[in-house]
Each structure stands twice: as C-alpha cells, then as structure tokens.
Amino acid sequence: MEQFLISIGVALLLLMLMSLFRVVAGPTVIDRILGVNVIGIKTVVLIIIVGILDGRVEMFIDIALAYALLNFITTIAAARFYQRQSQPAAADAEEAKTAPSAPPTAENPPAGKEGSHA
C-alpha cells in the first residue's frame, strides 16, 4: 500500500510539472495565475501524502491547512491586482459609467429571466 501512495505522489508531481508548462508559457499573465493555483491546490494533497508516509499526519496537517489558506489568498490577491491594473484610471472611469457597464453577451437579453440559447 505504501508503494501505491508513493507512486500516486510521484505521478501527481509529474502532472504538476506538466501544469508548470502553462505557468511558463503563458500566453497571458492570468493564465500563469491559473496554473499556479492548480499547482498550489495539489501541493496540499502532496503534503498529506508525505505526512502519511512519514507517519506524522497530525503534524503535517497543520502545514497543509496553512498552505491551502495562503494559496487561496495569494490567488485572490494576484487576480485582484491584475484586475485593478487592467481597469481604466479615475478620469476614464467617469466616462465608463455612462457607457454600458454590462458587457454585451450572445443575445443581450432584456430585463426578465431568459437564457441565451445558441
């Protein structure tokens, strides 16, 4: 059974390396943030696998929980920072309020509940 856990851990590591391609290659910054988020979530699983193999889960679980929390905050902060950078500055924002702030969609349904089927 330990062999199985070790092999799963190694396979997860390989897949995380594959996700790293998305982080390195881009093409945009937000793609990289997405790749980092995927890797971060899987690191939590990896930490707990290491803990079980080590026989000290009660110690590693604190690390895993802290890692999961900080990974979540990092992702949100990076996304919010990117979003802020791509928004117009204050002078332009005044214009933007008069412009339709709602992004137009497939059929741009009016008020009332309606999905836009293809």
Binding site: T28, I30, I33, L34, R80, Y82, Q83, S86, Q87
Partner: peptide
C-alpha cells in the same frame, strides 16, 4: 476571481 479578472482585462 481569476475569470473575473481575465474578463475585465479582455483576454
């Protein structure tokens, strides 16, 4: 959060 930021940036 990620997809909202990407949509805002007009990816």
């Amino acid at each position: 959060a990620i997809i909202d930021a990407g949509y805002e940036a007009k990816v």
